[in-house]
Amino acid sequence: MGNCLKTPTTDDISLLRGNDSQESDPNLGPPPPYQERVPVYHPSPNVSRPANQLTEEEQIKIAKRLGLISHLPTGVYDGSVKKGKECVICMCDFVLGDSLRFLPCMHTYHKKCIDDWLMRAFICPSCMEPVDAALLTTYESS
């Protein structure tokens, strides 16, 4: 059993130096508070909350949603007509190399466009089919 926590002596010296320099410069204010960009989620209509303010129920709902979305197949547009030509969310034609997301109802969108939408509502914008129900039927049939 080895000890993974290595404390080289040089560290101690640098810490001491750091302390010294702070004391010698009184103009230097306290360090800015640690800030992190917290993603904002939309657990239900008219409710938008940063990730750290979600209720437990909402956390579970969002975690489930993220898990389900990550299971939806993705791909890259290779020019085949079968995958459709246009993303109806941004109304832009697919360009070779675009990242796509395929829904179980066989509708295709830009990955970025549909992922943002599915976090708000879990239905296909084209056929309004609930994605979770469609996922279940594809599992059952395959």
Binding site: S44, P45, I89, W117, A121, F122, I123, P125, P130
Partner: peptide, 21 residues
Amino acid sequence: LHEPGDDKYGYETAAERWLPV
């Protein structure tokens, strides 16, 4: 024109609400 998503009271389904299309 109502905000998208499923409300827990089931007042309106997600399909009846706003769609990005």
